[in-house]
Design a protein around this nucleic acid. Structure first.
Lengths: 105, 105
DNA sequence: GTATCGTACAACCAAATGGTTGTAGATCAG
DNA sequence: CTGATCTACAACCATTTGGTTGTACGATAC
């Protein structure tokens, strides 16, 4: 995963509407217009949010008749979690070093 | 934590320079100018990145003489991880429901 | 066929973002 | 005291972001 991919991933999570979309489509299927009905903004605005989530691999779209069904994509979420886990690991290493120093002294 | 706080948190993570700063200051102490020396951009630009990280609770600053020491702040990182864990939990619930339906059928 | 629905996409706009330079205030070294 | 260093912050600029409206087109309903 490139740095640009990571940028897209966290940037996608940095908007409350998009986080809400991710939650909704993980629980149930929604068409784009079904999602748009939930928010106080235009259809086109929601469409753009979905596109941002799609580029970040947090959501997939599947055509069904004239509708486009949006579904949660576990892949993107897992990537984000693994990344934060790496930072956590760096922290634990630091804490470990400090503990070692205290043990020596 | 407000939605705006979450916005700030993920937005702070959505830039490669800022992610690198977080890694660095978790491992060792850096002054702002010490960090600035690492990147091909102006001091002021790095200063702004540090400010973004500070508002997101991913970093703290502490004055030491004329320097400002930047340190990693575990609090923000933990918050981010917990948030992603919530999304993961929603996923597991979904997978569980599907498994139940399959078991019934 | 015609009207409607769901979607895509372009054009536009205001505000935020990520960068710059320049100025000014503290603090430290000599 | 003087000069160098570290930081803060304002002003500015180009690009991106998050929103809007309008247009066009495929799929569905009647």
């Amino acid at each position: 995963m490139s740095e640009a991919d990571v940028d897209r991933l966290f940037q996608a999570f940095s908007d409350a509407t998009r986080r809400d979309i991710v939650r909704r489509v993980t629980v149930a299927d929604y068409s784009v217009s079904g999602l748009a009905a939930l928010y106080a903004m235009s259809f086109a605005a929601v469409q753009k949010h979905v596109a941002v989530l799609e580029r970040a691999s947090l959501v997939t779209k599947e055509k069904r008749g004239r509708e486009q069904i949006v579904r949660g994509n576990h892949e993107g979420l897992q990537k984000a979690r693994r990344l934060l886990d790496e930072y956590e690991a760096i922290w634990r290493q630091r804490v470990g070093r400090i503990a070692d120093i205290l043990a020596e002294g």
